[in-house]
Simulated assay, not measured.
Amino acid sequence: MRSRECRDAGQAFPIYITVVGGLLFLALAYFAVGQASVNRNGAQTAADSAALAAAQDTRDQLADKWIEDVPDPAEWQRIFEGDVAGLGPSCWRAEQFASRNDARVLSCTTEGLLGFTVEVETVKPVGNSIVPGTEDKRSRASATAEVESRCTFELPADDPGAEDLPELACGDERWILDPENPIDLPTADELFDVHLAD
């Protein structure tokens, strides 16, 4: 009777080892998937922030241009549409923000007049895991950000060169601008919205 109990215990031991080994393998597999997911999320965060940074740089330049041209409302619409000559490049801001998120910019391209698409790659690889070949793999992601005017106005139909500036409506705010004293002006984020494209 005792030998039978020993035999049963001896047969259960390999099953126990197999179950524990399987559970360990599953735990390591979940860990590997988690590693890759964290790396991928980091890449997407870097791409999002890089694209937004490039778009915000363009927004700030457009806002500065609008402030210069406040006395000339005939130029406002072109500025709000981004159709302005002489704007500086903005992709340097994408590179700056990507590096802050442990990534590097692979490409930064303009999308029309007011958009940027940025592709990044993580600096750190996924790392060692039970999945072979992941130690040198780096995650890539891309994002597109857009600048959009928040403002509308109407030029006087009878006298576009009138001395009074048109009322500027940006979202829920209204500005009555004085060409002789243009101090209380909307800020860049009141003039333009910057967002990730859907």
Score class of each variant (00 low, 15 high):
D158H: 13
L106T: 11
S99A: 13
L113R: 09
C151P: 08
S142W: 05
E121G: 12
C91R: 09
V131H: 02
S90T: 15
L155A: 07
A145H: 10
C108T: 05
L106D: 09
V123R: 11
E119P: 03
S139W: 05
T134F: 07
S107P: 11
P160K: 01
V105N: 10
R140C: 05
E135V: 00
A157G: 01
A157C: 04
A94R: 00
N128A: 15
D158F: 10
V120W: 14
C108L: 15
L87W: 03
K124D: 07
S142D: 01
Q96C: 10
A157T: 06
R140A: 08
A94Q: 02
G88V: 12
G127P: 00
A145F: 15
A141E: 15
T110A: 12
A85H: 02
L114M: 11
T144C: 04
G127H: 00
W92D: 14
T152F: 00
C91H: 07
E135G: 00
T117M: 09
P89V: 03
L87E: 10
E119H: 10
C91I: 14
S139C: 07
Q96R: 15
R104V: 15
G133M: 02
E119F: 03
L155W: 04
G127K: 00
R104G: 09
E135N: 02
D102K: 07
V118D: 07
D102I: 03
E135P: 01
S149T: 11
T122C: 09
G115E: 06
V120E: 10
G86N: 03
R138W: 02
L106N: 07
D136V: 06
V118E: 01
P160L: 02
I130N: 07
N128F: 09
N101M: 01
V120S: 09
E135F: 00
E148N: 05
P125H: 01
T110F: 08
G112A: 02
E154M: 15
P156V: 02
N101G: 07
D136Y: 10
N101I: 12
T134K: 03
N101H: 08
V105F: 10
V123N: 15
G127W: 00
T117W: 12
L155Y: 04
V105E: 06
P160C: 01
P89H: 09
V131D: 01
G115T: 13
A157K: 11
S142G: 12
L113H: 00
G86F: 11
N101Y: 05
L113K: 06
V105C: 08
L106G: 05
T152A: 04
E154L: 15
S99I: 11
V126P: 00
V120D: 08
I130W: 01
D102P: 00
G86P: 05
